Amino acid sequence: MIPSQDIFTISSAKQFEKITLKVFRYQYENNVIYKEFCDLLKTDKGAVKSLEQIPFLPIQFFKSHEVLSSVEPVQETFTSSGTTGMITSKHLITDISLYEQSYRNAFSEFYGNIEDYTVLALLPSYLERNGSSLIYMVQDLIELSNNENSGFYLHNYDELISKLLELDAAGQNVLLIGVTYALLDLIETKKFQLKNTIVMETGGMKGKRKEIIREELHQILCEGFGVSSIHSEYGMTELLSQAYSLGNGIFESPSWMHILIRDPEDAITYVDPGKTGGINVIDLANINSCSFIATQDLGKKYPNNTFEVLGRFDNSDIRGCNLMVY
C-alpha cells in the first residue's frame, strides 16, 4: 500500500511517474475489475515502464461494476447526477480522509488559506439529491472557512444577492461557487459590479438550459457579475481530485493528478500537445478505487501541462471502451 503522504507531497515529474507506476502495480494486483480489463488488453504488468503504457479504465465501469482496490469497509458512496431511470456512477470510498486531503491541499495550492474567504455556494441541483461529492467538499470548505457568513443557497436568490453585495462592498474576499445554470439565473435577476469576489462555475446546465460554448458562457457571466474572469472547477464523481481554472478555461492540476489526451479513434494512442482528443486522468488520490480513468470528455493539453475541456464524446464516438460492458 502506498502511504497518502507520498501521494500528496509529490514535487517532480520523476517522482510522480515513480509513484504512479507503484500505484498501477498495486491496483493491478488488488482491483479485480481493473486486472480483468488490463488482461483483456494483454497488458504485461512487468513491461509497463511509463505513464503512456498504463491502461485507462473507461469511466462507464463505475456505472456497471464496483471499482475497488481495497477490502476495507465502504465509508461513503458518491453518486453522479442523472435523469430518472438513468444508470448513475457509484464511487465507493473506503477512506474519506484521502478525499479530504486531496481537495483541502488543492484549494490551498491554488487559492491559499480557506479562512481568508467567505464561501457562498449556489448548488441547487446537487443539494436536492444525496451522494454528491461536490456538496461534501463545499460543505467542508464552508466549515473550514470559519466564517458565519459562509453557507449554501438553494433558490433564495434575494437573500444571496443582498449577502453578496454586502460582503463585496465591505471588502471581504468572497468565493461564489455555483452550478452554471444557477449562476445564469442569478445574473438575470440582478446585474453586479463585484470587486472582491471570485466566481467559480462547476459546469453543467443539468437539463435546465441549452448548453452553450465556454467562451460565450464566460463572457455572459463576466458581464453579469462585473468581473474580469470566471474560475472553473474540473472534477467528477469518479475522481477524488479536482483541477482548477483561474480564468480563460485553462486548467491546472495539483501535483498528484495528471492529464493525458488519447486519440479519439484509438484508445491506446496519445495525440501531440495542442491536438484534440479524449481526456485520460491519473488521480493518485483514487488509490482505493482506480487511479487511471478514461473520461468521456474531449480536451487539449498544452506543453506546460495545462489543459482545456472542449466538450463530451457522443456515446457512439467512444472507441476501444466497449470491452467488458456486460
Rank of each mutant, 00 (worst) to 15 (best):
G85Y: 06
L141I: 03
N30M: 04
E252A: 14
C290R: 14
G178P: 06
E252G: 15
Q53W: 05
K206I: 02
E265R: 09
K301L: 12
I261S: 01
F110T: 06
H218P: 05
Y181W: 12
I19W: 04
P273L: 13
S70A: 06
N196L: 08
K18C: 11
I198N: 05
Q101N: 01
F307I: 01
K195H: 09
S162L: 12
F37L: 03
M324N: 13
R104H: 13
V199D: 03
M257N: 06
N149T: 15
F62P: 00
Q27Y: 13
K18G: 04
L160H: 00
V174P: 01
S316K: 15
N105T: 13
G178R: 05
K208W: 00
S4C: 06
L123A: 03
T88K: 11
V179R: 01
I54R: 08
C38S: 13
S64M: 11
T180R: 12
F225M: 01
S145H: 03
E17D: 04
K45C: 09
I261D: 03
D116Y: 03
K45F: 06
N280P: 01
L260G: 01
N304I: 10
I7A: 04
E201D: 09
T79S: 14
S12L: 03
R312H: 07
Y111S: 07
G131E: 07
Y244F: 15
Q101A: 08
T276Q: 12
V138Q: 06
W256G: 09
Q296M: 07
S145V: 11
F62V: 00
E216A: 08
F307R: 02
A13T: 13
M324S: 12
S228V: 12
T180C: 02
T237R: 15
E17K: 13
V48P: 12
L57Q: 10
N248C: 05
A170D: 02
L122S: 10
T202D: 05
E36F: 15
T94F: 00
Y99C: 10
L164I: 11
M1C: 10
V138P: 05
N248A: 07
Q193K: 14
